[in-house]
Write a protein that binds this DNA or RNA. Structure first.
Lengths: 337, 337
DNA sequence: CTCTGGCACTCTGTGTTCCCGAGTGCCAAG
DNA sequence: CTTGGCACTCGGGAACACAGAGTGCCAGAG
């Protein structure tokens, strides 16, 4: 069906179109790549490729442009991920290493990725549900008010102000804190509800009321905050790419957390790349854009995902290389801190 | 120099231009506003206004367009801030009231402002330097590792991981925590350095080394984090406005924290509006955009600033009303929580 | 069966020209 | 000071022509 030469032609079309952003014709192809055959032959191949939906002509008598299906084939079979240069790896490493807390790690990561790929970068905060509790703190703020602070092993900190039903002395708070910590230290977040279920019963009766109040907020925090936080950067790169049409839609999508979440896609393996091309996206405003995403995490658990979004005609090998590399380094940083 | 009618003409030009986005001519003016004089008279006035730099013609024989100077006069003397409708106020109140922590307050505020004005909204996090410490927590993570958590009275939480020079037992940590809190509770952030200066000397010798390490990180956090955090939302509104030219520059400016900081402007009174029009901005990429900003805070201290950024030809009365209202409500929310 | 050169054909994009109309500035009269 | 009249300017759209790139197809050569 598709012999080697036709595949070579498709690859050449994708590469040329990506770099020039203009429909590519048979003449230009034979000039720039030495395919060893004449333009006429190429034309036949092109006709075949078009027949099968891998390329199309914007107008009669213009060059050919890859379709989403064409890009898909290119990504799956015709290209290999391009590793970063040594210098780039170095840059990533030093840039990320300077971060002092989770916020900054995420912030730097998203900027780095945007700069590296010259596209819009998207990074999801390490998810709560897959991490575990490192410490629980209860801080008295006022007579009947405490702040609950939750620190996870990924460095994420959640805080809630809680109004208590009664005055509680500081030592009772201290006691409660100690009990909570001994129960929950290292506990996976998904395990918290059952771990905590019978806890009030093990406390002296006078503390139960307070414990119940605090625990309910704690659980609520875990569940509600399941809606994960996502940040993006590099929107200016969108304007640079000759997007023009649909830019509006893309910007809108970027500001919708929910859409972004779905774009990053469901789980794959760590550092395993997911590529969504044009119409494969689950959002109509993003026809014309592709997403390259990967999971990242410490150890072998995927904590969250990150990726970039750009025009369908992006340089996939390079972009994929950058995304994979950044995902790996972030994983390392998270594991180390 | 500028009699009442000329001012009326300028006002009419600004209003028409803002709503139609097309240069406005003498005929159109007399049609849409009943100025009681003929187009010819208006033309004379326009010539005078142009002479003095308040309006200009894009080309000979096109209508007139306000200059930055013209907008300035309009904002200063020809318009009054338009209060929000009751329904809008209601919406703001309920929308903001649902926020559970500082992150969410800021997030909701910026979205709200963007939606209300249909422009790009910018909100600065309540500044550290002007708030005070509510609690300091030291959390043991590993043998020689602790996490320092700082909670301010505005609900902001700062965290840092610290590597210690030696093993430290938990009770010593607890002791240190108690001492720190008794020193620093309620202490204004700007006062922290001096408050803490002689603290190591008041500790038993064996704890000094550790205390110094922790304090240095604490101070560093306060100082370094002086670079304030800023978020924005509503970039999609930029694309909707027929910006086209310069959109790139604007997006770039938005991603530069430093530029944003300067744009929001130096302090004015709380809820006191600052308007920067076009070339008044301290950044060349933003020719053609205006900023409307206001301070917000709880009580009478300005904690930070917020505002919107849009094309020079924006509806100033409405925008100013929205910014002022949101600033006030956020202040209330912060004071209440 | 595949490749190749030739050829006629089809578009798009660009440059040119032309003309309409909105808007102006100026002037003389009220 | 205001007004109507008038000549003038210029941007922008419509009509048109044209060059150039690219195609499809066909007949002939390996």
């Amino acid at each position: 069906m598709l012999d080697d030469r036709k595949l070579a032609v498709l690859r050449a079309i994708v590469e040329d179109y990506v770099s020039t952003n203009e429909p590519v014709g048979s003449k230009a192809l034979t000039d720039r790549h030495n395919l060893g055959v004449s333009p006429a032959t190429i034309r036949n191949d092109m006709a075949a490729l078009e027949e099968q939906g891998y390329i199309r002509q914007p107008h009669t008598s213009a060059g050919r442009v890859p379709t989403d299906k064409g890009y898909r084939l290119f990504v799956d079979r015709l290209s290999s991920i391009k590793p970063l240069s040594r210098a780039e790896r170095r840059a990533i490493e030093t840039f990320l290493a300077g971060a002092v807390d989770l916020d900054e790690i995420v912030m730097r990561t998203v900027r780095l990725l945007a700069q590296l790929t010259r596209q819009v970068a998207v990074v999801q905060y390490p998810s709560l549900t897959r991490s575990s509790i490192r410490h629980v703190e209860i801080v008295p703020l006022a007579e009947r008010r405490v702040m609950l602070v939750l620190i996870t092993n990924t460095g994420r900190v959640e805080q809630r102000v809680i109004d208590l039903p009664e005055d509680v002395a500081d030592d009772r708070i201290g006691n409660l804190r100690a009990v909570l910590n001994s129960c929950l230290d290292g506990c996976g977040l998904s395990m918290v509800p059952e771990t905590v279920a019978d806890l009030p019963e093990r406390l002296p009766p006078e503390d139960r009321q307070v414990a119940v109040t605090i625990l309910s907020v704690l659980l609520e925090t875990l569940v509600e905050r399941h809606e994960e936080k996502i940040v993006f950067a590099g929107a200016a790169n969108l304007a640079a790419a000759d997007f023009s049409v649909g830019l509006r839609d893309v910007l809108e999508a970027l500001e919708e957390q929910v859409v972004l979440m779905r774009l990053l896609g469901e789980t794959a393996g760590i550092s395993e790349l997911t590529v969504r091309i044009g119409s494969e996206n689950p959002y109509s405003g993003l026809r014309g854009t592709s997403i390259v995403a990967a999971g990242y995490g410490s150890g072998d658990k995927e904590l969250a995902r990150l990726g970039v979004l750009g025009p369908t005609r992006m340089d996939y090998p390079v972009t994929m290389g950058a995304v994979r590399a950044v995902a790996r380094y972030v994983g390392q940083i998270l594991a180390g801190s």
